[in-house]
Protein backbone atom coordinates (compact mmCIF):
# COMPACT_ATOMS: atom_id res chain seq x y z
CA UNK A 1 0.00 0.00 0.00
CA UNK A 2 1.55 3.28 -1.06
CA UNK A 3 1.41 6.37 1.11
CA UNK A 4 0.25 8.90 -1.48
CA UNK A 5 -1.88 7.48 -4.23
CA UNK A 6 -2.98 9.63 -7.17
CA UNK A 7 -5.23 7.95 -9.70
CA UNK A 8 -6.62 9.32 -12.95
CA UNK A 9 -6.51 12.97 -11.90
CA UNK A 10 -7.75 15.56 -14.39
CA UNK A 11 -7.72 19.27 -13.67
CA UNK A 12 -9.15 22.01 -15.86
CA UNK A 13 -9.81 25.70 -15.35
CA UNK A 14 -13.04 26.35 -17.21
CA UNK A 15 -12.57 24.67 -20.58
CA UNK A 16 -8.79 24.76 -20.45
CA UNK A 17 -7.28 21.47 -19.33
CA UNK A 18 -4.15 21.78 -17.20
CA UNK A 19 -3.52 18.21 -16.15
CA UNK A 20 -4.70 14.99 -17.76
CA UNK A 21 -4.64 11.42 -16.55
CA UNK A 22 -2.09 11.86 -13.77
CA UNK A 23 -1.50 8.70 -11.79
CA UNK A 24 1.21 8.24 -9.23
CA UNK A 25 2.13 6.02 -6.31
CA UNK A 26 4.53 7.34 -3.69
CA UNK A 27 5.88 5.41 -0.73
CA UNK A 28 6.26 7.06 2.68
CA UNK A 29 9.60 8.84 3.06
CA UNK A 30 10.25 9.35 -0.63
CA UNK A 31 11.56 12.67 -1.93
CA UNK A 32 9.82 13.54 -5.18
CA UNK A 33 11.10 16.32 -7.44
CA UNK A 34 8.60 17.77 -9.89
CA UNK A 35 10.13 19.41 -12.96
CA UNK A 36 8.81 20.70 -16.27
CA UNK A 37 8.31 23.81 -18.35
CA UNK A 38 6.40 26.79 -16.99
CA UNK A 39 2.63 26.45 -17.09
CA UNK A 40 2.54 22.68 -17.35
CA UNK A 41 0.77 22.03 -14.10
CA UNK A 42 3.52 21.22 -11.59
CA UNK A 43 2.37 23.87 -9.17
CA UNK A 44 -1.27 22.98 -9.79
CA UNK A 45 -0.43 19.40 -8.92
CA UNK A 46 1.27 20.56 -5.73
CA UNK A 47 -1.75 22.71 -4.81
CA UNK A 48 -3.98 19.67 -5.26
CA UNK A 49 -1.74 17.65 -2.94
CA UNK A 50 -2.04 20.55 -0.51
CA UNK A 51 -5.82 20.43 -1.03
CA UNK A 52 -5.93 24.14 -1.79
CA UNK A 53 -7.47 23.05 -5.09
CA UNK A 54 -9.41 19.92 -5.89
CA UNK A 55 -9.08 17.73 -8.99
CA UNK A 56 -11.83 18.04 -11.60
CA UNK A 57 -11.83 14.24 -11.84
CA UNK A 58 -9.89 11.46 -10.19
CA UNK A 59 -8.83 10.86 -6.61
CA UNK A 60 -5.90 11.62 -4.37
CA UNK A 61 -5.52 9.36 -1.35
CA UNK A 62 -3.08 9.97 1.48
CA UNK A 63 -2.54 6.96 3.72
CA UNK A 64 -5.63 5.43 2.14
CA UNK A 65 -7.87 8.38 3.06
CA UNK A 66 -9.28 11.00 0.67
CA UNK A 67 -8.31 14.62 1.32
CA UNK A 68 -10.64 16.80 3.37
CA UNK A 69 -11.20 19.68 0.95
CA UNK A 70 -8.97 22.29 2.60
CA UNK A 71 -5.33 22.60 3.66
CA UNK A 72 -4.58 20.95 6.97
CA UNK A 73 -1.84 20.24 9.42
CA UNK A 74 -0.90 16.92 7.84
CA UNK A 75 0.76 18.69 4.92
CA UNK A 76 3.27 21.50 5.39
CA UNK A 77 4.05 24.00 2.67
CA UNK A 78 6.91 26.32 1.79
CA UNK A 79 6.35 28.83 -1.01
CA UNK A 80 8.92 30.78 -2.94
CA UNK A 81 7.67 34.01 -1.35
CA UNK A 82 5.28 35.03 1.44
CA UNK A 83 6.03 31.88 3.41
CA UNK A 84 6.52 33.46 6.82
CA UNK A 85 4.30 35.93 8.68
CA UNK A 86 5.77 39.42 8.23
CA UNK A 87 4.07 40.80 11.35
CA UNK A 88 5.58 38.26 13.74
CA UNK A 89 9.11 38.09 15.03
CA UNK A 90 11.28 35.18 13.92
CA UNK A 91 10.63 33.41 17.22
CA UNK A 92 6.86 33.99 17.06
CA UNK A 93 6.82 32.54 13.56
CA UNK A 94 8.02 29.23 15.03
CA UNK A 95 5.81 29.52 18.11
CA UNK A 96 2.84 30.08 15.76
CA UNK A 97 3.07 26.43 14.69
CA UNK A 98 1.95 25.54 18.22
CA UNK A 99 -0.09 28.63 19.09
CA UNK A 100 -2.30 28.51 15.99
CA UNK A 101 -3.75 25.21 17.09
CA UNK A 102 -5.34 26.74 20.17
CA UNK A 103 -8.81 28.24 20.21
CA UNK A 104 -7.85 31.90 19.75
CA UNK A 105 -4.28 31.47 18.56
CA UNK A 106 -2.54 32.56 21.78
CA UNK A 107 -0.59 30.51 24.28
CA UNK A 108 -0.44 31.36 27.96
CA UNK A 109 1.60 30.44 31.00
CA UNK A 110 3.53 27.18 30.95
CA UNK A 111 2.48 26.32 27.38
CA UNK A 112 3.87 29.61 26.20
CA UNK A 113 7.16 29.13 27.98
CA UNK A 114 7.49 25.59 26.64
CA UNK A 115 6.76 26.71 23.08
CA UNK A 116 9.25 29.57 23.34
CA UNK A 117 11.93 27.26 24.66
CA UNK A 118 11.28 24.77 21.89
CA UNK A 119 11.37 27.59 19.34
CA UNK A 120 14.65 28.85 20.77
CA UNK A 121 16.16 25.38 20.32
CA UNK A 122 14.87 25.14 16.76
CA UNK A 123 16.23 28.56 15.89
CA UNK A 124 19.59 27.71 17.43
CA UNK A 125 19.71 24.57 15.31
CA UNK A 126 18.94 26.34 12.04
CA UNK A 127 21.34 29.15 12.85
CA UNK A 128 18.76 31.88 13.42
CA UNK A 129 19.12 32.14 17.20
CA UNK A 130 20.78 35.54 16.99
CA UNK A 131 17.86 37.11 15.08
CA UNK A 132 15.01 35.61 17.14
CA UNK A 133 13.57 39.02 18.03
CA UNK A 134 13.80 40.55 14.58
CA UNK A 135 11.08 40.67 11.97
CA UNK A 136 11.47 38.46 8.87
CA UNK A 137 11.83 41.49 6.60
CA UNK A 138 15.28 42.12 8.08
CA UNK A 139 16.49 38.60 7.17
CA UNK A 140 18.18 37.57 3.94
CA UNK A 141 16.29 35.41 1.43
CA UNK A 142 18.11 32.26 2.55
CA UNK A 143 17.39 32.93 6.22
CA UNK A 144 13.71 33.56 5.46
CA UNK A 145 13.41 30.26 3.61
CA UNK A 146 15.22 28.43 6.41
CA UNK A 147 12.70 29.96 8.81
CA UNK A 148 9.82 28.99 6.51
CA UNK A 149 10.98 25.37 6.36
CA UNK A 150 11.53 25.21 10.12
CA UNK A 151 8.06 26.73 10.68
CA UNK A 152 6.44 24.17 8.39
CA UNK A 153 8.30 21.35 10.14
CA UNK A 154 7.36 22.63 13.60
CA UNK A 155 3.75 21.65 12.93
CA UNK A 156 5.01 18.08 12.35
CA UNK A 157 3.38 17.42 8.96
CA UNK A 158 3.60 13.97 7.38
CA UNK A 159 4.17 15.46 3.93
CA UNK A 160 6.25 18.52 3.16
CA UNK A 161 5.39 20.40 -0.03
CA UNK A 162 7.94 22.81 -1.46
CA UNK A 163 6.95 25.18 -4.28
CA UNK A 164 10.22 26.39 -5.84
CA UNK A 165 11.53 27.08 -2.34
CA UNK A 166 15.02 28.07 -3.48
CA UNK A 167 14.07 29.77 -6.74
CA UNK A 168 14.88 33.28 -5.52
CA UNK A 169 18.18 32.44 -3.79
CA UNK A 170 21.73 32.90 -5.03
CA UNK A 171 23.70 29.74 -5.94
CA UNK A 172 25.81 29.65 -2.77
CA UNK A 173 22.83 30.04 -0.45
CA UNK A 174 21.02 27.45 -2.50
CA UNK A 175 23.74 24.86 -1.84
CA UNK A 176 23.60 25.60 1.87
CA UNK A 177 19.82 25.18 1.77
CA UNK A 178 20.20 21.81 0.01
CA UNK A 179 22.43 20.59 2.82
CA UNK A 180 19.96 21.93 5.39
CA UNK A 181 17.03 20.18 3.72
CA UNK A 182 18.90 16.87 3.34
CA UNK A 183 19.86 16.97 6.99
CA UNK A 184 16.29 17.66 8.08
CA UNK A 185 15.01 14.90 5.91
CA UNK A 186 17.51 12.35 7.15
CA UNK A 187 16.35 13.22 10.65
CA UNK A 188 12.59 13.05 10.12
CA UNK A 189 12.25 10.72 7.12
CA UNK A 190 9.22 12.62 5.90
CA UNK A 191 7.71 12.49 2.45
CA UNK A 192 8.65 15.51 0.36
CA UNK A 193 7.31 16.90 -2.90
CA UNK A 194 9.38 19.70 -4.40
CA UNK A 195 8.58 21.75 -7.49
CA UNK A 196 11.73 23.14 -9.06
CA UNK A 197 12.96 24.70 -12.28
CA UNK A 198 16.49 23.53 -11.58
CA UNK A 199 17.03 20.02 -13.00
CA UNK A 200 20.31 19.60 -11.15
CA UNK A 201 18.63 20.47 -7.87
CA UNK A 202 15.80 18.05 -8.66
CA UNK A 203 18.17 15.16 -9.29
CA UNK A 204 20.46 16.01 -6.40
CA UNK A 205 17.76 16.09 -3.75
CA UNK A 206 15.09 13.78 -5.13
CA UNK A 207 14.70 10.02 -4.96
CA UNK A 208 12.50 10.33 -8.00
CA UNK A 209 12.23 13.07 -10.57
CA UNK A 210 8.83 13.44 -12.24
CA UNK A 211 8.72 15.34 -15.51
CA UNK A 212 5.48 17.15 -16.38
CA UNK A 213 4.92 17.71 -20.08
CA UNK A 214 2.19 17.70 -22.68
CA UNK A 215 2.14 14.35 -24.49
CA UNK A 216 -0.16 15.77 -27.17
CA UNK A 217 0.40 19.13 -28.75
CA UNK A 218 -1.86 20.98 -31.15
CA UNK A 219 0.20 23.65 -32.94
CA UNK A 220 -2.97 25.56 -33.82
CA UNK A 221 -4.21 25.55 -30.23
CA UNK A 222 -1.41 24.98 -27.73
CA UNK A 223 -3.86 25.10 -24.83
CA UNK A 224 -6.06 22.31 -26.18
CA UNK A 225 -4.41 19.56 -24.17
CA UNK A 226 -3.21 19.29 -20.61
CA UNK A 227 0.06 17.99 -19.23
CA UNK A 228 0.78 14.77 -17.44
CA UNK A 229 3.75 12.94 -15.93
CA UNK A 230 5.77 11.90 -18.96
CA UNK A 231 8.90 10.57 -17.21
CA UNK A 232 9.50 9.13 -13.80
CA UNK A 233 13.27 8.95 -13.26
CA UNK A 234 15.02 7.13 -10.49
CA UNK A 235 17.41 9.66 -9.02
CA UNK A 236 18.94 7.79 -6.09
CA UNK A 237 22.58 6.67 -5.93
CA UNK A 238 23.94 9.94 -4.66
CA UNK A 239 21.79 12.05 -6.87
CA UNK A 240 23.65 11.15 -10.04
CA UNK A 241 21.17 11.31 -12.90
CA UNK A 242 21.59 7.94 -14.54
CA UNK A 243 19.38 4.95 -15.03
CA UNK A 244 20.30 1.38 -14.23
CA UNK A 245 20.05 -0.75 -17.35
CA UNK A 246 17.92 -3.45 -15.80
CA UNK A 247 15.47 -0.94 -14.35
CA UNK A 248 11.98 -0.26 -15.60
CA UNK A 249 12.07 3.49 -16.12
CA UNK A 250 8.28 4.06 -16.07
CA UNK A 251 8.43 5.97 -19.32
CA UNK A 252 4.97 7.26 -20.22
CA UNK A 253 3.36 5.09 -22.87
CA UNK A 254 0.22 6.51 -24.46
CA UNK A 255 -2.46 3.90 -24.56
Amino acid sequence: MSFVSVSGVFKSYGRRPVLEAVSLEVAEGEFISLVGASGCGKSTFLRMLLDEEQPTRGTILVDGMPLSGEPSQSRGIVFQRYSVFPHMSVRDNIVAATAFQTRFGWLTGADKRAARDAAAKTLERIGLGHVADQYPASLSGGMQQRLAIAQAMAARPRILLLDEPFGALDPGTRLAMHAFLQELRAETGMTVFMVTHDLEEGFKLGDRVLVFDKPRWDPQEPEAYGATITYDFDARDGGIPYQRLEEDTHVFKPR
Partner: peptide, 12 residues
Protein backbone atom coordinates in the same frame (compact mmCIF):
# COMPACT_ATOMS: atom_id res chain seq x y z
CA UNK B 1 -2.71 28.66 3.27
CA UNK B 2 0.33 28.59 5.51
CA UNK B 3 -1.77 29.36 8.57
CA UNK B 4 -4.13 26.53 7.67
CA UNK B 5 -1.25 24.07 7.35
CA UNK B 6 -0.22 25.13 10.86
CA UNK B 7 -3.65 24.08 12.08
CA UNK B 8 -5.27 27.52 12.44
CA UNK B 9 -9.07 27.78 12.57
CA UNK B 10 -11.01 30.61 10.90
CA UNK B 11 -11.03 32.47 14.22
CA UNK B 12 -7.28 32.15 14.65
Amino acid sequence: VKAQTLGASSTV
